[in-house]
Design a binder for these strands. Structure first.
Length: 422
RNA sequence: GCGAUCGUAGCUCAGUUGGUUAGAGCGCCGGUUUGUGGUACCGGAGGUCGGGGGUUCAAGACCCCUCGAUCGCCCCA
């Protein structure tokens, strides 16, 4: 509980500790490992950019830009913004650094993002994502490889009950024609739509399709389908993606009403969503998407670059962390210095063992009788007690170590250490 | 931006229709069982009951405001 004059953390930020922090680290470590398997190269990006990087790339009318950005003026009067996503900044870096020379470029990164929103379960003002992008690759195989990586990542995290929902938005022309048809269709029944969807009709008609409001849902089933507006090329592209996924053993499900909020998406759009009634769905509350992305062939042009096909995804680390289970890290060795005469020696032994690659914790403070108990409670694999009684030093090892090699190596190291000290 | 629920020790929570010095468990600190021991027992520290105002002889409990948290809507990872 915060005391009167102790500053509070900013709303929507988190101080992550304990099992949550372990889960967070596990997600990041697993991502780093899997990304190397697919040969994605690591990039580090600035946390803030000129505001126009996001407003031009993401779209002025999107919620992200119009009301969720952390923007401020720097001392030179430029408008800067804390990044609300990775893709726009990566696209900017691609153009400003001439990374075209590396195309097709596969990059991965992770870190904090910022969005001024009302915090709730699985949703924060400072949140964290892992992110993967393939830039300068227009072939459907790029989509497949990217999705295969996502699928493998989730499996290696041990996350179950999550399904890839897949859709195509077609190329620019298909998408526009579909959008126009949707506006026409929903305009005819405008008065019967929810208030939110009446507004969406102006701003983002595609979003009406995944409205949660019953009043909207009864019209959704008969709404125009994207498939009717796809050009032959767009259709062939989507088929190549789906057959590639099948060949790669990635399970997917067609989601005709899946659209993505940001302006730059074309062709493939996808989200990994927990199955209804699954443990994952329960854990996430109403924030159902754990990983989402798609193809954004139009983005580079909006930043003044040459047309450049690209596809990418991002996943919320906090959301993934809610779905993984990690065992608490226990020490390989705990040393209880049960009398003050042995404290110095206990720390020396700890250093010796740490240099040999063992994780060691020393218990040498507080009541002497309680040091052993504390060491015990930390549930180490091996427990060394060091005491000094009746003028005699004793050193004992109690081992619950299931790894016999490590346990016997420890005994040897401790024995060496004692001989060397004499 | 809107709505609902909630705010009592470091943590999890009790606190009866408003009624004396606000409690428990865990954790923390100290001590006892002169001991191969994750035990048990004893003691201690720690609370402006989120904050402010009001009603009342009396408020942790009731009313108003405010701050914060949680969950949901919008949107999104």
């Amino acid at each position: 509980m915060a005391k009167g004059n102790t500053p509070q953390a900013i709303r929507g930020t988190q101080d992550i500790f304990g099992p949550e922090a372990e889960a967070f680290a596990f997600v990041v470590e697993t991502f780093e490992r899997v990304r190397k398997l697919y040969r994605f190269r690591r990039v580090e990006m600035p946390v803030f950019e000129k505001t126009e990087v996001f407003s031009r790339a993401i779209g002025e009318t999107t919620d992200v830009v119009s009301k969720e950005m952390y923007s401020f003026e720097d001392r030179g009067g430029d408008s800067l913004t804390l990044r609300p996503e990775f893709t726009a900044g990566i696209a900017r870096a691609y153009l400003s650094n001439g990374w075209q020379q590396h195309a097709p470029l596969k990059v991965a990164t992770h870190g904090p993002l910022f969005r001024y929103e009302r915090p709730q379960k699985g949703r924060y003002r400072q949140f964290h994502q892992i992110d993967a992008e393939i830039i300068g690759a227009g072939e459907p195989q790029a989509d497949v490889e990217l999705l295969a990586m996502a699928d493998q990542l989730l499996k290696e995290l041990g996350i179950e009950g999550v399904t890839l929902h897949l859709n195509t938005l077609g190329d620019g022309d298909s998408r526009e024609a579909w959008r126009a048809a949707l506006v026409e269709y929903f305009s005819a029944v405008k008065d019967e739509l929810s208030e939110d969807s009446q507004e969406r009709l102006e701003k983002n008609p595609l979003r009406i399709l995944d409205s949660k409001d019953r009043r909207d849902q009864k019209f959704v089933a008969d709404a125009p389908k994207i498939d009717a507006f796809l050009s032959d090329e767009a259709k062939a592209f989507f088929e190549a993606v789906t057959s590639g996924l099948d060949a790669a053993g990635v399970k997917w499900k067609r989601a005709e009403s899946l659209v993505r909020g940001l302006d730059y998406y074309r062709h493939t759009a996808f989200e990994f969503i927990p199955d209804e009634g699954s443990a994952a769905a329960d854990a996430l509350g109403s924030q159902s998407t754990i990983l989402g992305g798609g193809r954004y062939d139009g983005l580079m042009e909006s930043l003044g670059g040459a047309p450049t096909p690209a596809v990418g995804w991002a996943a919320g680390i906090e959301r993934l962390a809610m779905l993984v289970s990690v065992r608490p890290e226990v020490a390989e060795v705990a040393i209880a210095a049960e009398s003050d005469e042995r404290v110095g020696e206990a720390y020396e032994l700890a250093q010796h063992l740490r240099k040999e690659g063992l994780s060691v914790e020393v218990f040498a403070s507080g009541g002497k009788r309680k040091r052993y108990d504390k060491a015990r409670k930390s549930e180490p694999l091996n427990l060394i007690s060091m005491d000094f009684r009746d003028g005699e030093a004793s050193t004992n090892i109690a081992s619950d170590d299931t790894d016999d090699v490590r346990a016997s190596r420890l005994e040897r190291l401790v024995e060496e250490f004692r001989r060397a000290r004499k």
